[in-house]
């Protein structure tokens, strides 16, 4: 077994009296897809925010590629190879689809903030960005402003923006949220094609997707991990069935 890329150690976070993250420890191995499931309000998004640096845990440690990143800003975590997507689509609406993806390419370029060279006509940015768009099937929409994409296309763009960073690990916060059956199936296929190349933490409500994709499943309820392990074992777990799966079918 190789060393995990991402390790959470006893992470805790409260909003006032509400414990949103309650002593969470979990790890994701290189190339592994670790699904995080749990009912609405369980604290999944809040956990992803803490891993990506948008929120600070009250205590505990987050290790990424052997380094404690708990005190780092989101931009530093991203530059170390930790990418994320958002449950509520978060793109730059007025920039074109290609430009949105090129942001990530630019972040890892030699001169990410050069002042004078035109960015829109910069093949060093556009070529890898287009490759990421091709990977998610959005290449033909490259010139459209991101704000004009359909909901499903926006979800694919979110994914392309994360891929453009060439990350080691990707945090996926409900990539299938709100997409129709057909688009959902395409996204699931896409995620499965990414398996093995990136360490992924997948937050998802779609149980069919989770059990089709995950190498490992953890169940979060009221901020606590109540079960973690092989998908089949988690599915059979009595506590999980009672707390969560039972009501969802």
């Amino acid at each position: 077994m190789s060393e995990p890329v991402l390790i959470l150690e006893a992470v805790r976070k409260s909003f006032g009296a509400l414990k949103v993250t309650d002593d969470v420890s979990l790890s994701v191995a290189p190339g592994e897809l670790h699904a995080l499931i749990g009912p609405n309000g369980a604290g999944k998004t809040t956990l992803v925010h803490q891993i990506s640096g948008m929120l600070k845990p009250d205590s505990g440690a987050i290790r990424f590629r052997g380094e404690d990143i708990s005190a780092l800003t989101p931009e530093k975590r991203a530059r170390r190879g930790l990418a994320r997507t958002f449950q509520i689509t978060s793109t730059i609406a007025s920039l074109s689809v290609l430009e949105n993806v090129a942001l990530g390419v630019q972040a890892r370029a030699a001169h990410p903030l050069s002042l004078f060279r035109n960015a829109a006509r910069d093949a060093a940015l556009n070529r890898p960005a287009l490759a990421a768009l091709e990977a998610v099937g959005l290449a033909d929409r490259a010139e459209v402003p991101a704000g004009r994409l359909s909901h499903g296309e926006k979800r694919a763009l979110e994914l392309a923006m994360a891929l453009a960073l060439e990350p080691t690990a990707i945090l996926l916060d409900e990539p299938l949220a709100g997409v129709g059956r057909e688009e959902g199936e395409r996204l699931i296929e896409l995620l499965s094609s990414l398996k093995g190349r990136y360490a992924m933490l997948l937050v998802e409500h779609d149980m069919a997707a989770v059990f089709a994709l995950a190498d490992k499943v953890s169940v979060l309820v009221y901020g606590r991990v109540i079960a973690s392990g092989e998908p089949a074992a988690v599915r059979a777990d009595a506590a999980v069935r009672e707390a969560y799966l039972g009501e969802e079918g």
């Binding site: 990506s52 931009e75 530059r79 960073l165």
Partner: peptide, 9 residues
């Protein structure tokens, strides 16, 4: 927020 999680200060 998006810009910062993309790696920019």
């Amino acid at each position: 927020v998006r810009v910062s999680v993309t790696g920019f200060d």
